[in-house]
Simulated scan of single mutants.
Amino acid sequence: MAEYLIYFNQQWVGDHSEEWFRGRGPLARAVVEEMKAAGVLVFTGGLEEETEDAFSADATSGTLLITDGPYVETKEFLGGLAIVDVADDEAAKLWAGKIAEACGWPQEVRRFKSRAQSS
C-alpha cells in the first residue's frame, strides 16, 4: 500500500452559485463515506479560504521567524486535500476521479515518498 495526496488549488474551483455548491456537498460527502467504507481514507479536509489568517514558520536563517500570512505571495493556494492509502497509481486515480466528479473541479495526485525513502 502507498499513500497519495489528492488535492486542489482554490482557484481551480471556479465561480459558481451557492445553489451549485450546496448540490456538490452531498456528492463530496458520499465519496468520503465511500473511501471510509473501502478502508482507504487517511484524512480529508478543506482549508479556510482566508489566506490573511494564515501564518508561516521559517528557520532558514538559523533563527525561527513566525510571520502572518502565507510564506509566498501567490495567486494560487491550496483549497483542500485527501490522503488515501491504496495499492497503486490506478487506485489513486480512481479515487481522484471520484473526488473530481463529486466536487466539480480538477484534482492533482502526488504519491508520498515511502517511509524508507524519507528517513
Rank of each mutant, 00 (worst) to 15 (best):
M1Y: 12
M1F: 12
M1E: 08
A2Q: 12
Y7E: 06
Y7L: 10
Y7A: 11
N9T: 06
Q10I: 05
Q11A: 08
Q11T: 12
V13A: 09
G14Q: 09
G14D: 05
G14S: 08
D15Q: 13
H16P: 07
S17E: 12
S17C: 14
E19D: 15
W20V: 10
F21Y: 15
F21D: 14
R22M: 15
R22Q: 14
G23I: 12
G23N: 14
R24N: 08
G25H: 11
G25R: 11
P26A: 08
L27P: 05
L27A: 08
A28R: 05
A28C: 12
A30G: 15
V32M: 12
V32Y: 07
E33H: 09
E33C: 07
E33D: 09
A37H: 04
A37K: 04
A38I: 13
V40W: 01
L41E: 00
L41R: 01
L41P: 00
L41S: 02
L41N: 00
L41I: 00
V42F: 03
V42E: 03
F43N: 01
T44P: 01
G45L: 08
G46C: 04
L47C: 02
L47N: 01
L47Q: 00
E48W: 04
E48Q: 09
E49N: 07
E49F: 04
E49R: 03
E50C: 03
E50D: 08
E52W: 01
E52P: 03
F55S: 15
F55W: 13
F55D: 14
S56D: 09
S56L: 02
A59N: 15
A59D: 15
T63L: 13
I66P: 13
T67M: 13
D68R: 07
G69C: 11
G69A: 07
G69T: 07
P70K: 06
V72N: 07
V72K: 09
V72E: 06
V72A: 12
T74N: 11
T74Y: 05
K75S: 14
K75N: 15
K75I: 15
E76I: 06
E76M: 10
E76S: 11
L78K: 03
L78W: 02
G79F: 00
G80M: 00
G80S: 01
L81Q: 03
L81I: 09
A82M: 05
A82Q: 02
I83Y: 03
V84F: 01
D85K: 05
D85Y: 08
D85V: 10
V86H: 04
D89Q: 10
E90H: 12
E90L: 13
E90S: 14
A91D: 08
A92K: 03
A92Y: 05
K93F: 09
W95G: 00
W95N: 00
A96S: 06
A96L: 01
G97C: 11
I99M: 06
I99P: 02
A100N: 10
E101A: 12
A102E: 08
A102C: 06
G104T: 09
P106N: 13
Q107I: 01
Q107Y: 07
E108N: 05
E108R: 05
E108Y: 03
V109I: 04
V109A: 00
R110F: 02
R111L: 01
R111A: 01
F112A: 02
K113L: 10
S114R: 00
S114K: 02
S114Q: 02
S114A: 09
R115W: 05
R115S: 08
Q117Y: 01
S118F: 04
